[in-house]
Design a protein around this nucleic acid. Structure first.
Lengths: 235, 235
DNA sequence: CTAATAGTGTCTATAAGACACTATTTG
DNA sequence: CAAATAGTGTCTTATAGACACTATTAG
C-alpha cells in the first residue's frame, strides 16, 4: 500500500453524515422538523435530524437518509431528493466534516396520523427560524430555495397536500409554498399538463353551501418522484 | 466521548473523495477530461480526475476540487459547480465511498495555451465514451444532463467559448452544447436579457468577404458564476 | 455590382394572466 | 330563488420562433 503521489496518501479521518430537511405545510407555512440537541457540540440548540452514514448497513447516503427519517421521525416512503453536500473544517467543532443534505416532504395529514411526535422535536416555520446548530441554517435556506424554485414547474407541492385533495386545496398548497398567489386558470392548465392526478369517483363536499370539488390522488408513478414541465407558472 | 445512542457511535472509515467532470467544447462536441488509471482498482481504465479531500489544507470540498483541477489539469480559476454526491459500498472496490462530484468548464482556447497536456490524460466526446472506472460513467451522464439543461436558461455555455468571441460564435457554442439549432433572433434576445456581455471596441473580421461581427467578453461579474433567467430558449 | 454573413424589424405562434361566465351545491 | 365556491371560455399580454429585410465587408 505504498503511495507514489501525494494525492494517493491515506485519507485523514473525516466526519461523514447525512442531514435531513424534512418539510411540511402547516398553517399555510412551510415548516421544518428540528431536534433539540442533547449533547455537545451545540447542546441545547436546534438542529436538523441527521446521523452518520453506516457503512455496514447503508447502500448509499440516500439509504442513510431514509434510515434517519425512520429512526428520528418515524416516517417511511416519503419523497426524498438530494440537496447538496456541505463540508469544511469549521461547520462542526469536532473536526473536518462532510454532510450530504437531503430534502424530504411529508403532508400534514400523514404527520397527524403518525404514532410518535417524539420528545425534543419541533416544527418551525422556515421563514422565522432561530440560529441553528452547525451550518444547518444555511442548509435549510438552500432547501427552501430549491423547493420554491421547483414548485414553479413541477409536481413537488403535491407531496405536501394530504390525499385525497381537491384542486382548490392543491392550489392553496402551491400558493403557500410559493408565498404568492397563482392564477387559478393557469394553475389548472398546469395540472392538466403535468398529468399527475387521478380523479377519485365521488366529489368532496365543501364547508359552505356551494358546488363540491372533485377529489384527486397523485398517480402512483409520481408518489416517489416529480414530474417536471418545461415552463413554469411565473418567472 | 461515550456514546449513548447507536447513531452517535464512532463513524466507520469511509473513503471520501472529490471527482471532477471537466468539460470543454472541441470539434463542436462536449468533451470530458479522462485520466488513465495507473493503479488498481480499475488499473488501465479511464477515470475522472479526482482525489481525496485533505482535511489539513482544504476549506471545503470545493477547495479540494479546485486543487484537483490545478494539480491534475494545470487549470485555475475555472467556473465550477457542485453536481451531486455519489456514494455506496459498490462503487469503489476498496470500500464504502463517498464522492462529491463537481462540474468544471474550460474553453478550448485556454486549453491550447496551457502548459502541459499531461501524459495519460485525454479528451473524449461525452456521447461516445467507453466504460469508465468506478461509477464515473454515471457521473458524466449526470454532469452532461445538468449542463445541457442549464444551457437553456443561463450563461453557462459562455464558459466554453474562447474570449473574445462574436455572437455568432457564441450562438454556435449554445447549439453545440444543446445538440440542436437555436433560433438566432431568440438567441440574441436571450443574450440581451442575460446582460452578461461587454462589447470590445473593434470588430472581428470573418473568414469570408462579409460584414465583420462585434467582439464581446464575459462581464467580470460572471466569470465565476452564472446568470440565470426565468424562461429558456426551448422546452 | 455580387456574395456572404452580421444584425434588425416585425409577424406569427404559444402559453400565461385576467376576467367573465356557467355549474352545482345548501338553505 | 340567493349565496357561495367549482370549473370553463375566451380575451389580453408576454415571449419565443419564423422570415424577410437592411448593414457591412471583400472582391
Amino acid at each position: 500500500m505504498s503511495t507514489s503521489t501525494n494525492s494517493a496518501r491515506k485519507p485523514p479521518p473525516l466526519i461523514c453524515t447525512v442531514d435531513l430537511v424534512l418539510l411540511t405545510l402547516r398553517d399555510e407555512q412551510l415548516q421544518v422538523l428540528l431536534l433539540k440537541r442533547e449533547r455537545d457540540p451545540f447542546a441545547g440548540a436546534l438542529a436538523l435530524p441527521g446521523g452518520y452514514v453506516h457503512a455496514d448497513q447503508d447502500q448509499g447516503c440516500e439509504d442513510a437518509a431514509h434510515r434517519v427519517l425512520r429512526d428520528k421521525a418515524g416516517l417511511e416512503g416519503l419523497y426524498l431528493e438530494q440537496l447538496a453536500t456541505f463540508s469544511g473544517p469549521g461547520r462542526d467543532p469536532r473536526g473536518w466534516s462532510v454532510s450530504v443534505a437531503y430534502v424530504a416532504l411529508v403532508d400534514a395529514g400523514r404527520l397527524a396520523r403518525r404514532a410518535l411526535p417524539a420528545p425534543g422535536c419541533s416544527w418551525l416555520p422556515v421563514d422565522r427560524l432561530p440560529a441553528l446548530a452547525f451550518d444547518h441554517g444555511h442548509i435549510v435556506e438552500a432547501a427552501v430555495a430549491r423547493v420554491r424554485s421547483k414548485s414553479l414547474y413541477s409536481s413537488l407541492p403535491a407531496h405536501l397536500c394530504p390525499e385525497p385533495f381537491t384542486l382548490p386545496e392543491l392550489h392553496a398548497v402551491y400558493q403557500a409554498v410559493l408565498g404568492e398567489s397563482v392564477n387559478p386558470v393557469s394553475f389548472r392548465r398546469k395540472m392538466d399538463e403535468l398529468d399527475i392526478l387521478d380523479a377519485v369517483t365521488g366529489a368532496k363536499r365543501a364547508e359552505g353551501p356551494h358546488r363540491p370539488a372533485q377529489l384527486y390522488r397523485l398517480r402512483k408513478e409520481f408518489r416517489q418522484r416529480l414530474r417536471l414541465v418545461g415552463r413554469g407558472l411565473k418567472a
